[in-house]
């Protein structure tokens, strides 16, 4: 084991170095984007990208709307209702596999299944559908971890008071897991906002503000991808790529703050 003083010291130094490196890297990346992007971040770009921002928010909203209930109830099912039967093992295996699939595969699946096979239009709806599948494992895993920390005495207490399983889930389990769910939501938002490969074949493209979920659109990330690939695509060339990247970062931060705020209000109301 690691019990020589010099070994302990070495581990300590390595840990420090790794931490410093990580912090520097993040700091450098973020400040690079800010410095490069800030000069392009003006009213023109904001106007240009308003449809991108709205489309992105729509995908985030709809994908979470689908994935959240599905994910939360799958997690509860896995943790509360079952005792490691065959079905659970299969579900576990699927979730773990889903988590490891590269997003381009999701893109291919979405294109061939949603668009070619089901005949759906290229739209925000189709993109949200595939993104809800992409983020499902994140929601399930985080909720499950939170459920594992629930004090079993709380569940017993509720059932002993004549509460049904449904009431117990609703009033004891979900409020207890809210932190885990929030964690999953924050990770999911990052993933959805930043995703290109999984959605670019099924969302189509448009430059006007979408009027419904069934219209095509471009998200910040898919547009960013196009501009980087083909800078002539945009008035400012590669410059607007930095601007859009900055907006993308800001949106992620703002959405995370919003989620935390909602959580805070929710907790306060519960007392």
């Amino acid at each position: 084991m690691l019990n020589h003083p010099w070994q302990v010291k070495l581990i300590k130094i390595l840990t420090y170095l790794a931490t410093i490196l990580l912090v520097l890297l993040v700091f450098w990346m973020v400040s690079f984007i800010i410095i490069q992007g800030i000069s392009y971040l003006n009213m023109t770009l904001l106007k240009e990208s308003s449809s991108l921002i709205i489309t992105t928010l729509m995908v985030v909203f709809l994908a979470l709307l689908i994935a959240l209930p599905l994910g939360i109830f799958s997690a509860i099912y896995l943790q509360v209702y079952t005792n490691n039967g065959k079905l659970v093992k299969m579900m576990r295996f699927s979730i773990d596999s889903l988590n490891g699939v590269p997003s381009i595969i999701f893109g291919l699946f979405a294109l061939s299944f949603f668009i070619y096979y089901l005949g759906l239009n290229r739209s925000i709806f189709s993109a949200s559908l595939i993104m809800s599948i992409v983020v499902l494992p994140l929601i399930i895993k985080n909720t499950e971890e939170a459920i594992k920390t629930i004090d079993i005495a709380q569940i017993q207490g509720s059932l002993a008071l004549g509460a049904s399983r449904f009431t117990t889930i609703n009033r004891v389990i979900i409020p207890y897991c809210i932190d885990g769910i929030i964690n999953g939501v924050i990770l999911a938002i990052g993933k959805i906002v930043g995703e290109t490969a999984a959605i670019m074949f099924v969302i189509g493209s448009a430059s006007s503000i979408p009027k419904s979920f069934f219209e095509p659109g471009s998200t910040l990330a898919t547009k960013l991808y196009l501009i980087i690939q083909e800078p002539t695509y945009s008035s400012n060339g590669i410059g607007s790529a930095y601007g859009i990247a900055l907006i993308l970062l800001l949106i992620v931060v703002l959405l995370n703050l919003l989620v935390k705020l909602v959580n805070h209000i929710f907790m306060k109301r519960r007392g």
Binding site: Q154, L161, Y176
Partner: peptide, 17 residues
């Protein structure tokens, strides 16, 4: 359980009012 209540070894109030 509506007719037969139970009190546990460790107090287990819910985190509510």
């Amino acid at each position: 359980r509506k007719k037969v209540g139970m009190v546990f070894q460790r107090p287990n109030p819910f985190p509510m009012s």
